[in-house]
Amino acid sequence: MSQLTLRPAEAGDGGPQARRPGPRPGRLRRSLTPYLYLLPTVLLLVALMVLPIVMVVGYSVMDNVITTRSSESVGLDNYVEVVTDPVFHTAIRNTLYFTVVSVLAHLVLGLAFALLLNSAFVGRWAKAIFRAIYVLPWLFTIAVVAVLWRLLLNPNGVVNYLLDVTGFIDGNVEWLADPDTALHAVTFINIWCGYPFFMISLLAGLQGIPKDLYEAARVDGASAFRQFWHVTIPQLKPIIISMALLDFIWTTQQFALIWMTTGGGPINVTEMLSTFTYKLAFSKYEFSMASTSAVIILALSMVLAFFYVRHQKVRD
């Protein structure tokens, strides 16, 4: 380790070398300034995100909070209780089905419509009209979507009427109220309102693929399917993976649609992790158990978020 020793004569001359051992005030201010600009955001993140998360994690190991005057720690008892609750298992199964089917359908439909809108066989005006029609479901808020589909899927609604007159069904089907069809019905509604996000993103991706690649493939004698499989899909792969991971995270957290269409019923066939947690908090007032459930959902979401971030880093 080297050490700078100042001779008295040098120390007293007031030159620049005399101030070298200590940090210059100007330099300190310059180095701190970026952090000070970041400070409002950091403080907001701490106050609105970190603090609530820490509080919820803390709540999850208490006997109960908010509705009780004094709370005691119960360790991991709440976690054991939630994880061993059969309704929680049902909620996990339903959430998994709802999410996986929704994401896959969003991807397939989004890609199909994006290819259609990017096709040279469809005219400019037709594209504009179809683009507006296809994107419509995405523009409705979830409350509107829920009310709309509750009316359409009503036993006396339009869907049953159309299926009846075309001979597909005989009599009234209770799409949302029948335990055999309710989960599929809410999944269908979620697919309907979610595919445009994929479509728009994939359309942007398709428009960014260089035409040279297709020309080269055609020169090599590649069929339309092989061009799609060996040019389009590899070019879209980064977008597809990002979108699928994001959609997976969002769909696992879907609450409003389920709550407003079925409330988790009939019985518990559409119970999701989100509705399970909500009921614990605002119906049973068991805020500690709700926090426990929320922490488990957070942990599962973090796993997905980890893959998303890792994928983004690889892309960069």
């Binding site: 509750r150 109220a177 029948d178 009939p266 019985i267």
Partner: peptide, 8 residues
């Protein structure tokens, strides 16, 4: 009873 009871 009218259909759709379970989510009515």
């Amino acid at each position: 009873i009218a259909p759709g009871s379970f989510t009515m």
